[in-house]
């Protein structure tokens, strides 16, 4: 069986500085995988390499067995990978409903067509409404997305990310800047919408990580120093030394 994501000796340098220094990682289909690590470890860079935002310096990224080298973000998305961002990234001037509907268009085969009217497709409207229901934003349907509260915008972004039906979902710090109750809500939402999908997420909140992830990778200075089930990682002395010890004390 091919894995959902396969990283082989992935490297990225910005000028003289090597940020990602040879990452090997294999994430099987259907797994919820968390990438953790101290600030500046290169987690977001790794995310951006996988999703095609930056080109890699060396190494291979494979999605469902397909090499992603040289592919633009929109091409990678069409192959079944969808992501959210650390900083909320939605369409602020469009309504909540339209945000979701736009994220459905490509996967539903509308592409660049100018002979269909989107409002005439009941299919599209129903699918968008179903997603709004899932992320509990039905009541906000007609509001411009920019006026939603922070937690609602994060929920909307998750909705946009999953709407296209991608089988690999990547979330970059989905609970950053949220209160406890908001975090609990988002964790439940993530659990619900990533059912039967592969989830890769970067997260700082250890409660979220240990609650959601099947496996965890620890990234330190551009290298993965440990990968495994939450208990194994927690018990790993190198991890404790590099990162978890300090983080656990703080919590």
């Amino acid at each position: 069986m091919t894995s959902a994501l396969e990283l082989v000796n992935l490297r990225k340098s910005f000028g003289q500085t090597e940020i990602i220094r040879g990452v090997d990682l294999s994430i099987p289909k259907g797994e919820r995988h968390a990438i953790i690590g101290p600030n500046g470890a290169g987690k977001s860079t790794l995310f951006n390499l996988i999703t095609g935002r930056f080109p890699q310096t060396a190494g291979v990224v494979e999605l469902n067995g397909q090499d992603l080298a040289g592919k633009a973000p929109y091409e990678i998305n069409r192959l079944g990978l969808s992501r959210s961002f650390q900083i909320t990234n939605i369409f602020p001037m469009m309504t909540v409903f339209e945000n979701v509907r736009c994220s459905l268009l490509w996967s539903r085969g509308y592409k660049y067509s100018f002979w269909n009217l989107v409002a005439r497709s009941n299919d599209l409207t129903e699918a968008a409404d179903a997603i709004l229901e899932q992320i509990n934003l039905t009541a906000r349907r007609e509001l411009p997305a920019g006026v939603l509260s922070y937690a609602e915008q994060r929920a909307l972004e998750i909705g946009i990310t999953i709407a296209g039906g991608a089988n690999v979902i990547m979330l970059d710090e989905p609970t950053a800047g949220m209160s406890h109750s908001e975090t609990d809500y988002i964790v439940e939402l993530i659990r619900k919408v990533t059912e039967n999908k592969t989830l890769v997420m970067v997260e700082h909140d250890m409660g979220v990580v240990f609650g959601l992830a099947d496996r965890i990778s620890v990234l330190v200075y551009g290298e993965i120093i440990a990968t495994g089930a939450p208990e194994e990682v927690r018990a790993n002395p190198r991890v404790q030394e590099a990162y978890l010890g300090a983080a656990m004390e703080a919590h």
């Binding site: 973000p73 069409r78 969808s82 946009i160 296209g164």
Partner: peptide
């Protein structure tokens, strides 16, 4: 509104 987001929607 957001060209980058649109790219990540295909």
């Amino acid at each position: 509104d957001n060209p980058e987001r649109a790219e990540f929607l295909g």
